[in-house]
Structures are given as C-alpha cells and as structure tokens.
Design a binder for these strands. Structure first.
Lengths: 156, 156
DNA sequence: GCTTTGACTTCACGCACTTGAAGTTCCTAG
DNA sequence: CTAGGAACTTCAAGTGCGTGAAGTCAAAGC
C-alpha cells in the first residue's frame, strides 16, 4: 500500500485526526507493539508518522472496530510487516477479517429485526391490540433464540 | 412483553443459557442496577428468574451488544420498568437504538468494502499488476476517509 | 450422615484504554 | 534574544466492564 509518491510526514496530532484514533491510543498501540515503532524527529524525539504508518494505523483501527483483541492485532500486523512477499498471508488474514465482518453484519440484521418487533409490539400495546401484541411477543422470543444462536465473542 | 401464560421460573444457570450471557454477568448487571433485583427462593436465597426478568435481560443483551454503556442501559431499563403506560417512551428508546444499529450497519458495510479492496490490492501485488495495485491503494485511502467520517463512539 | 452439586458473596484481577503529572521542545512574537 | 505557550515526551495511576477464584451455604442422592 506504499507508493513512493509524496512521502509526507505527520505529527501525532495529524495522525490522530487522519485515523480518527486519539493520540493517546496511538502511543498506546505503539507501546504494546500493535504497530511498529514510529520514527522520531532527530532533535525533538517527537513521533513522525509517514504514509506507511498511517496505513497500518487505518488497518488496525479497522480491526479494533470489530472487537479484535490487541494481542491478535499484534500478530496480524507483525505478519503484515514482512513486506510484499507476504501477499498470500495478508490475503488469508483479510479473508478471516471479512468473515468476521460478515458474521457481525448478520448479527446486526437480527438485532435490527428484534428492535423493530419490539417497536411494533409497543405500538400494538398502545393501541390496545393485545392479540397482535401477544403475537409479536412470541415473535420476539423466537428471534431472541436466533440472536443467541449466532453469537460472536466480541464486546460481550 | 409479558403474557400471563405459563409463568415459568428459571435458575440463574437456565437464565444464562437462555440469554446467552454468563451467570457472572447476570449477577453483575443486577449488582449495578442494570436490571431490577431478581426475586429469591425463600429457603435458599438463590435467584429465581421469571419471564419478565428474561425478557429484560434479552433486551439488555441487545443493548450491550451494540456498545451501550451500563449507565445508559440502566436508564433505559428503569423507564421500561414503568409498565405498559410507558409505551411511548419505550418506542422512543427503541427508535434511538434502531438508529444506533443502522449507523453500525453502515459502518460495517464500509469496513467490508475496505477489506475487500485490501484483498484485491494484495492479489494485484501478487500478480505483479502494480498499476492496479496503485489504483486500489488510492481507493482504500479514499474509503478510509469515509470510514473515519462516519465514526461511532462504541468500542473505540 | 456424608458428599456432591449448584448458587451464594466478596474481592481481586484483566483488558483496553484514558487521564494526569512533570518534564522537554518547538514556535511565535515582542 | 528571550519569554510564553502549545504540543510533545514518559510514566503512573485510574476507569469501565466484566471475569475468575476463594470460601460458604443449602438441598439432594447414595
């Protein structure tokens, strides 16, 4: 992902703005080895991020956002640091992440259906339609089972 | 969500199985007031969950799974405990949750596109198609911006 | 009557950050 | 040239959300 055009450099504040992660988290990720050590300004000792660093951070942010542990992220990024000859490994890693995302997407579909049913239920209650309410109640229960069935590790 | 048929009761283990949450978490949620105090067996002091409790837990699990803080969950459930006359409030709460879920779904769509582009990128690298690789690299960068733009609070 | 099983409580720890303190360093402006 | 302030540094401690282990108690089976 590194084309050698316009190799701009960024301060930690800029990197934070660009990745959407707080600066503290950038430092934290570096400190625990989730990202490679960032080079420093010769005189200041301040971190200097290049495009490659930003790219790596963007990727890490994507992994983190799906609930991956920092330990796992470390492993992922370590592999990624091997360079272009690691293309196959990268593809594998990415495919796994794609699957994770697909599972999460499925979960969200179910949860959306669940709250929609709940909304319908309360509307039925409000309008005194107890028959419909009972029906929706049962439906919610059924969906709850499905929800439970397709759980992910993640935040829970 | 409480029809007065078959008012079964459940042990904490059963409740855990039914909601998909570990028993320890059930106790924890109760201890911090996310769910109302569960009634206890007269002799044993063991928690006895009824359908209403399970229902509440299912709902809490759904909220928790989308990254809601326990503090907010507490507020939500407190409102829910008011009974059927709170239908309107419940609908509002649920609508807010629906929106949260919609936002999350959108995020996931973007992230899936992102990893797909990354996969394509590495495939291009593998096959030596640097032109396509550069193109995909740029595409990933653009998508990264979009991802950043549509951030949610959540786990991050 | 003893032992196993399950639940009880409390406390301590773990993860992923986040925040605060105390100390440089860069920049801008008088 | 020097002063002030914003932004950076490190390190330590704190926070939010659970999770796990230790020790106790009560009902049920052999």
């Amino acid at each position: 992902m590194t084309s050698s055009t316009t190799q701009r450099e960024y301060t930690i504040r800029e990197a934070a703005a660009l990745t959407g992660l707080p600066a503290s988290t950038l430092r934290y990720y570096e400190s625990i080895g989730v990202i490679a050590p960032v080079s420093r300004g010769a005189s200041s000792g301040h971190r200097v991020y290049d495009e490659g660093d930003l790219d790596q951070l963007m990727w890490v942010a994507c992994l983190a956002a799906t609930g991956m542990s920092v330990g796992d992220m470390r492993a992922y990024v370590a592999n990624g640091a091997l360079g272009p000859e690691a293309a196959l490994g990268q593809i594998e890693l990415l495919s796994a992440q794609a699957q994770r995302l697909a599972a999460e997407a499925e979960q969200i579909v179910l949860r959306r259906r669940y709250v929609q049913i709940k909304i319908d239920y309360w509307r039925a209650v409000e309008s005194g339609d107890t028959a419909r309410a009972d029906l929706l109640s049962a439906e919610a229960r059924a969906l709850a089972d499905e929800l439970r069935g397709a759980r992910k590790p993640h935040v829970l």
